[in-house]
């Protein structure tokens, strides 16, 4: 009577889950490729030109940076709703400080964002308050702060150095785009190859286990909020430098755009599973939809109002979410760990 003792679970469903995860990740990628090909075929040269690529990536970079920070936060099982306000704060601070030079402006914007991250992180890890509400409160408060600093009107950068930051480009891509791609590469490497990255996923997967395994849960959780704040501040700097100003509504609703991008990328909102590069795909995909609508209207054959943009984004999110639900259901079907 030899009974199998350590049967490695139920093999087939397990494999299916992984297949599902892969399909889901690549699903976003496949959709992106299809849309790019579609755009190139339909709008021809205009779509494929360097100008569109440059303005598209430059524009997307700001959302990308915010979404990258959000990815790390969500992977720990948390959320950061304050990023939109932090974008505004970062932009305003950068513009104010840029009177003293470009670099101080850049650093000050990022530092301001990181400072908000520190505040969020302290409230969440030291006072043990729920991230959703803490960052909701800082969303309100930081927008108030940004507006106060700007004197309740748009903050306008002095012409010159600061605006150059938004216009500089390298090999046809704006500096913001390079920053985004670099940030994503470093982020992906950090997630995969450093203990810090592994800790983030472990905390999101099972925070109690992470604590008992002796992981520095507080420190790591704190760090993702600081990172998210700093990246949002950085996005604010680019926003300010590209537009030459930061208006009172800057960054409003960006937190939800970022969350949508993260989810579309396949990161589970419950934490523990995620991929940095998939978020990049998610951001590009969502922005590309907007870009295509602009082109479609430019063609003048049919007129899709820009209001459709949000509807399409919502529909997209719906599809992705339903896919995720299927995935999670399969996982729980593979066995209920006690």
């Amino acid at each position: 009577m030899t009974t199998t003792v350590t049967t490695p679970g139920r093999t087939t469903p397990g494999r299916r889950v992984r297949a599902g995860l892969l399909l889901q990740r690549q699903g976003a990628l496949i959709a992106l490729v299809i849309l790019v090909v579609f755009g190139a075929l339909r709008y021809g040269e205009k779509f494929a030109t360097g100008f569109n690529l440059s303005s598209f990536t430059g524009d997307t970079a700001k959302y990308g940076l915010v979404a990258l920070g959000m990815t790390f936060v969500i992977m720990t099982g948390g959320i950061d709703l304050s990023v939109g306000s932090v974008v505004a704060l970062g932009g305003v601070v950068a513009i104010k400080v840029s009177d003293h030079g470009l670099l101080p402006g850049l650093l000050a914007g990022i530092a301001a964002g990181a400072a908000v991250g520190v505040l969020n992180g302290l409230l969440i890890t030291k006072l043990k308050l729920p991230p959703f509400i803490v960052t909701l409160a800082t969303l309100l408060a930081i927008r108030g702060l940004a507006l106060t600093l700007a004197g309740t009107r748009a903050a306008v950068a002095a012409p010159g150095g600061f605006q150059k930051l938004g216009n500089w480009s390298l090999l046809g891509l704006p500096v913001a785009a390079w920053a985004m791609f670099l940030a994503f590469l470093v982020g992906a490497a950090a997630l995969h190859y450093t203990p810090w990255g592994r800790q983030i996923l472990a905390i999101g997967g099972n925070v109690d286990a992470a604590k008992l395994m002796g992981l520095p849960v507080v420190r790591t959780t704190f760090s993702v909020y600081v990172l998210s704040g700093a990246l949002a501040g950085c996005a604010g700097v680019f926003l300010g430098s590209q537009n030459g100003s930061v208006d009172t509504a800057a960054g409003q609703g960006w937190e939800l755009t970022a969350i949508a991008a993260v989810v579309v990328g396949g990161t589970l909102l419950t934490g523990g599973v995620g991929s940095v590069l998939s978020t990049l795909v998610g951001v590009l995909l969502l922005q590309l939809i907007f870009n295509l609508i602009v082109f479609e209207n430019g063609k003048g054959v049919i007129n899709i109002s820009s209001f459709w943009e949000s509807v399409i984004r919502g529909a997209f999110l719906l599809v992705v979410v339903l896919l995720q639900v299927r995935l999670v259901k399969r996982r729980s079907a593979t066995g209920r760990p006690a």
């Binding site: 419950t270 109002s305 919502g314 999110l317």
Partner: peptide
Amino acid sequence: LVARFGVQPIIATLILFIAGRGIAQLITG
């Protein structure tokens, strides 16, 4: 979405948050 499909409430209602205003705007352009 929440009760039948088990979608997390934040995300389930985020969908309508994003799409809903667009729908409202579309009614009268």
